[in-house]
Amino acid sequence: MHDEDETGGGRVTLARVAKEAGVSMPTVSKVLNGRTDVSRATRAKVVRLLDVHGYRRRAQPSSRSPLIDIVFHELESIWAMELIRGVENVAKENRATVVLTESGTRHTPAPEWLPGLLRRRPLGVVLVCSSLPGDIKRRLRAAAIPFAVIDPAGDADPDVPSVGSANWAGGLAATRHLTGLGDRRVAIITGPKVQRGFAHAMELLEGPERPTAVFAGSDLQALGVLEAARVKGLRVPEDLSVVGYDDVPPGQWSSPPLTMVHQPLRHMAEEAARMLLRPDDPGTAAQRIELATQLVVRQSTARLEDEGAAADR
């Protein structure tokens, strides 16, 4: 075990961690290298102490694999494919290979993918998730593996490099577009699932005050709204205006083509991947990049002719 090159005191730091954790130096090494033959409780104790002592393994370029990992909570959508293409663009520029991992249908990544990643020692990891648990952050930092998060929910942790888009501005642009068309009963559906978009839209369209417009949180949900409108015998946009979010190809090819808030998914992934390749740049140590969104008006929205029409639309 070669720990002379580690920061935070080298052998002294690891020896102190081993002593305080009540384990051997080889056990600490196993934790650092992602070995699975360490109990969860012992691993958590060692990781916590490494973080307390400010331990950071010094990255050695020769020991890093020419890989960029990208971790999703699910891989079933074209939305995911756009992000993969962005990471691949940067990987090709740097003669690296992309490794894909699906960590389960959750917005916080499960830790099961970590041991394999620590053994691979990639150039870095892009995480597509809403939030990143502290334990995962500490383990990646202790192993000197750069990471960046794409599209975190709410305000990103200030110590986590992240790339997002101007979601609030995009939502405002969509809402202003609809109210400018005369709509006052605008419904909002959130989430990525087509099926849930359909179910929620059916519920909304069967209500006593049917909305005149629906703003869906993704293109896939907007497609579900289109299907619900068809089932209910409503015309889009004559009876119901529909706006989607993301602007991936299926929404552009729908009938009618969807008005959408364009989120630059591929560009977001490219920026996140580039963060990994310059981890020693002080300006990217804990940087938040927010890219602009843009409303793209197509044929799924139309002007509400008059207030009386709202009862029929």
Rank of each mutant, 00 (worst) to 15 (best):
A156W: 04
V194A: 11
F198D: 03
E88P: 06
S131F: 12
D135A: 15
T101M: 10
V125I: 15
V126R: 05
D159V: 13
R95D: 15
L118Y: 09
G207T: 07
G171M: 10
T212M: 08
R95M: 09
T179F: 00
E227M: 12
R139G: 05
V214Q: 01
P192K: 03
L181I: 08
P208V: 13
A173S: 15
S162I: 00
L127P: 09
T108I: 10
V125Y: 04
L178W: 04
A142G: 13
A110Q: 13
N94H: 15
T212E: 01
A143V: 11
F147L: 12
R141T: 14
A169C: 03
A187H: 08
A229K: 02
G207I: 07
A169W: 06
A96N: 02
H200S: 12
R176L: 09
T179E: 10
P109Q: 03
K92M: 11
C129K: 01
G154E: 04
R184S: 14
V214Y: 01
F215G: 03
P208S: 14
T101L: 11
G217S: 01
D151W: 07
T179D: 00
G154H: 02
L140T: 04
S165D: 11
E88L: 08
I145W: 00
R141C: 10
R120D: 01
A201Y: 03
L140E: 02
E112K: 04
V128S: 02
G197E: 04
V160Q: 07
A222G: 09
A153G: 08
L117Q: 07
G170Q: 04
T101N: 08
E102V: 12
G182H: 06
G207C: 10
S103A: 15
A222T: 03
T190A: 15
Q195T: 14
G124W: 01
W113E: 04
G124I: 12
S218Q: 02
A169K: 13
F215N: 03
E93L: 12
A142S: 15
G104R: 03
Q221F: 00
M202T: 08
H177P: 10
D151R: 07
C129Q: 05
R106N: 09
L172C: 10
E93N: 06
A199T: 14
V128P: 05
A174M: 08
A144F: 09
A148G: 02
S218V: 00
L100H: 05
N89H: 15
H200C: 06
F147M: 13
A216Y: 10
H177G: 09
S103C: 13
D155H: 13
L220R: 10
G171S: 10
L127A: 08
L223T: 00
A153T: 11
A143E: 02
H107Q: 10
A143F: 06
L223P: 02
L100T: 09
R95H: 14
V128H: 05
I145D: 00
H107C: 00
A96Y: 01
L118V: 11
V214E: 01
